[in-house]
């Protein structure tokens, strides 16, 4: 990786400095009230280096990722602007990349996007003009070659730290590392993984990543999500596509008295953080406390990630 920063984002600086990075997540509201984001920001501030702003996650209409990112920056925090391929063609995607960068966004996460079937507008037409790997390639071309996909020159290229997601637990398992290699070849800078509950399987994936030397070309942040309750664990195990929750974790949550389940969920998340910190090739964690933002600080604290470095 070259000396000069690609984006100069805090997340990039932390990772480049060899520090164990922490990212969080903030879902925009289903309305136009900026106070909702500001409240979440107050809970998350200083608890991580940067925070994903989701882009109409689960295909439910929410405040735009760009606008929410700007509100977060006004609160003195660094967003990772998510962008899905489901809702925009390449014209809109490139336009929004320029817009986001102009407003100060420095990190971007390139995603395919959940199918609209899961959301509140299952009747809508999906786009998928690009897929997530082609989106990575597009951002890199804009940033490094100063060119649009169509080939024209960009005056004032966007400086973005390029992220993507990877799900080590989805099928077919044997192509999950080759798929990461494709993302690396396309130009991704960092990866946030799907929530890790099955640590042995993640370790197996990570070993393949290290064997191919991919961890030296891309920063890998392991995804950690605390269970709020046994009910949530069961829901994630059975209803969320591509999620792998081992039986023993379900049992551990089930055997915990109801009033202590939230605490146990946090314990599991913290234990996962410790394991990830020790695992070769893992450069950080991505804490996704879904609609439970107040717990990010607690997990980060207990895992020994605080205070965050000031770079």
């Amino acid at each position: 990786m070259s000396e000069e920063y690609k984006s100069g984002s805090k997340l990039e600086k932390v990772l480049r400095a060899g520090q164990f990075a922490v990212t969080g997540e903030c879902g925009p509201p289903r309305g136009a009230d900026p106070e909702v984001i500001k409240k979440k920001c107050a809970l998350l501030k200083d608890k991580a280096d940067a925070f994903n702003i989701t882009d109409n996650q689960t295909s439910v209409v929410r405040m735009s990722s760009i606008a929410s990112s700007v509100i977060m920056m006004q609160e003195g925090m660094e967003p990772v602007m998510q962008m899905v391929c489901r809702d925009r063609n390449r014209i809109a995607i490139q336009s929004d990349i320029l817009g986001g960068a102009a407003l100060g966004v420095k990190n971007m996460l390139c995603l395919s996007g959940d199918h609209q079937k899961f959301g509140d507008h299952p009747q809508s037409k999906n786009v998928f003009d690009l897929d997530s790997i082609q989106l990575i390639h597009t951002v890199k071309k804009m940033r490094d070659e100063h060119k649009f996909l169509g080939g024209d020159e960009i005056k004032g290229a966007p400086k973005l730290f390029i992220g993507a997601a990877e799900n080590p637990f989805a099928d077919p398992f044997e192509i999950r590392v080759p798929r990461l290699a494709k993302k690396v070849a396309a130009g991704v800078d960092f990866i946030q993984t799907q929530c890790i509950f099955n640590l042995p399987k993640f370790e197996e994936w990570m070993k393949q990543v290290v064997d191919r030397g991919l961890h030296e070309k891309v920063y890998i942040l392991g995804g950690v999500t605390p269970f709020k309750s046994f009910g949530m664990a069961k829901y994630m195990a059975n209803n969320v596509p591509g999620m792998d929750v081992p039986e023993e974790l379900l049992k551990r949550m089930k055997d915990t008295p109801k009033e202590k389940q939230a605490e146990e969920g946090i314990n599991i998340a913290v234990e996962t953080c410790f394991k990830l910190k020790e695992m070769k090739g893992v450069a950080g964690v991505h804490l996704m406390a879904i609609e439970w933002e107040e717990k990010v600080g607690e997990i980060a604290q207990k895992a020994g990630f605080l205070p965050r470095p000031q770079l």
Binding site: N126, D131, S132, Q134, G242
Partner: peptide, 13 residues
Amino acid sequence: SKSLLNGPCGGST
């Protein structure tokens, strides 16, 4: 379902 050209999404189970 998403006409992806570079491999499966994370939802393949």
